[in-house]
C-alpha cells in the first residue's frame, strides 16, 4: 500500500513561564492509504499535540515545532498531477489553510464546545465548502444538506438552520463529521471523537466513520485512550508515552504480542470479560515523567519492572521486532512469549 503521510522525528516544545515543556520528543509514524491508524496513550502523552502540530493548530507562542518532517503524499491534486510530497511543517499560512479542512479533515472530541454556539449548523458546514471549493451560498447550502443526510441526520433540510444546542450529543458529533468530510478529504483525524458520548452512540459514530472511510476512500487517524475502540476498528496502532512513540504495530500483533513494557502494562490494566470482580485490575506504578525536564534515559524506566542498567543510560531507539512492528525498548519482550 502506498503511504499517504509520513511523520519523521517530530519535535514540539512549549515555551512556558515555568520552563520548556518537551511535549513531543521525536515522534515518527506513517499512514497508508485507506488505513485506520489508532493512536493510544494516557492524557498528556502527546496524541493530540502530534496531530495539532501537523496542521499548525497549536497556539504559537507558547508552542514551537522544532524539528521533524511531515510528508503528505496527496494524490488528489486536481491542478497538477504532481505526486511529490509536501512537508506540512514547512507550509506557510495559506498553504496549510488549503490542507486544513480541504485535504485533511479534523473531528474534535466534545462537539458541543467544538461547534460555534451562535452559528447555525448549516452555516458551519457550508462555510468550509465556500472557502475550499469556491461554492456559492446556495450551492453550499444544497451540498450541506446532502452531507447532513449522508452522515445520518434526519430532516436535514429543517436541521440546516438549527443551532448546536438544539442537537443531541450524537447528532452534534455527526455534524462535526459532516464538517470534516465536506471537502472530500484524504485523511480524517479524529481526536477522541467518542469520549463524551455514551456507548450506543459511540458505536454508531464508529460505524459511521468506518462506512465513510470505505465509501470516500479516506485514511483515518483515530486518537483515543479506549483500547477497546482501537481493537475494534484500527488496522494499526501507535502507542504514545510521555511525548514519544513507544510502539507501533498491526492491531492483532499489538494486542497478542506487545513489544514494549508500557503496552504490556496498559493491556494488563484492561478488565477482561468473564473475569470481572475476580481480581483487582492491574495498575502501572508511578506517574509519567515531568516533561519540563525529561530524563536523558528511557522515559519509562522508573515505572518499568524490567528496567536494567542500560535503560538508565540512554533513550532506546525504535527497533523492528517483527515485520511492521516497532518498539522503542532495549529488550524484545514479544520474542519471549510463546
Amino acid at each position: 500500500m502506498a503511504k499517504i503521510l509520513e511523520v519523521n522525528d517530530l519535535i514540539t516544545r512549549f515555551y512556558t513561564f515555568d520552563g520548556v515543556v518537551h511535549a513531543l520528543s521525536g515522534v515518527s509514524f506513517d499512514l497508508d492509504e485507506g488505513e485506520t491508524l489508532g493512536i493510544v496513550g494516557e492524557s498528556g502523552s502527546g496524541k493530540s499535540v502530534t496531530m495539532m502540530s501537523l496542521l499548525h493548530l497549536l497556539p504559537t507562542p507558547p508552542a514551537r515545532i522544532e524539528g521533524g518532517k511531515a510528508l503528505f503524499y496527496s494524490n488528489r491534486n486536481e491542478q497538477n498531477n504532481n505526486t511529490d510530497p509536501v512537508d506540512l511543517l514547512q507550509l506557510d499560512k495559506s498553504g496549510i489553510r488549503k490542507i486544513r479542512g480541504g485535504k485533511i479533515g479534523f473531528i474534535f472530541q466534545d462537539a458541543l464546545s467544538a461547534l460555534n454556539p451562535v452559528m447555525t449548523i448549516g452555516r458551519q458546514i457550508s462555510e468550509t465548502l465556500i472557502e475550499h471549493l469556491g461554492m456559492t451560498v446556495d450551492e453550499a447550502k444544497k451540498r450541506s444538506i446532502e452531507l447532513l443526510e449522508y452522515v445520518g441526520i434526519p430532516e436535514a433540510e429543517k436541521r440546516f438552520s438549527a443551532y448546536p444546542h438544539q442537537f443531541s450529543g450524537g447528532m452534534r458529533q455527526r455534524t462535526m463529521i459532516a464538517v470534516a468530510i465536506a471537502c472530500n478529504p484524504e485523511i480524517i483525524i479524529a481526536d477522541e471523537p467518542t469520549t463524551a458520548l455514551d456507548v450506543t452512540v459511540q458505536a454508531q459514530i464508529i460505524e459511521l466513520v468506518q462506512r465513510l472511510k470505505k465509501e470516500m476512500k479516506m485514511s483515518v487517524i483515530w486518537i483515543t485512550h479506549d483500547l477497546g475502540v482501537v481493537a475494534g476498528m484500527a488496522d494499526r496502532v501507535l502507542v504514545m508515552y510521555a511525548g514519544s512513540a513507544v510502539e507501533i504495530a498491526p492491531v492483532d500483533d499489538l494486542f497478542y504480542n506487545p513489544g514494549h513494557p508500557y503496552t504490556i502494562k496498559l493491556l494488563g490494566a484492561l478488565p477482561k470479560i468473564g473475569e470481572e470482580g475476580q481480581h483487582r485490575l492491574e495498575s502501572i506504578d508511578g506517574t509519567p515523567p515531568d516533561l519540563l525536564s525529561p530524563p536523558a534515559h528511557c522515559q519509562f524506566a522508573w515505572r518499568c519492572p524490567h528496567a536494567a542498567e542500560k535503560c538508565w543510560q540512554a533513550v532506546p531507539a525504535a527497533r523492528e521486532i517483527s515485520p511492521g512492528h516497532h518498539a522503542a525498548c532495549f529488550f524484545d519482550f514479544a520474542a519471549r512469549r510463546p
Partner: peptide, 23 residues
C-alpha cells in the same frame, strides 16, 4: 474549541475573527 475548529476548517484568520470570535 470552536475557534480551533474554525481554523481546522481552513478558514482565513480575518474571517475567523469576524464570524467566530467577534460574534
Amino acid at each position: 474549541d470552536y475557534v480551533r475548529t474554525a481554523y481546522s476548517k481552513g478558514i482565513p484568520d480575518r474571517k475567523v475573527y469576524i464570524r467566530h470570535i467577534l460574534r
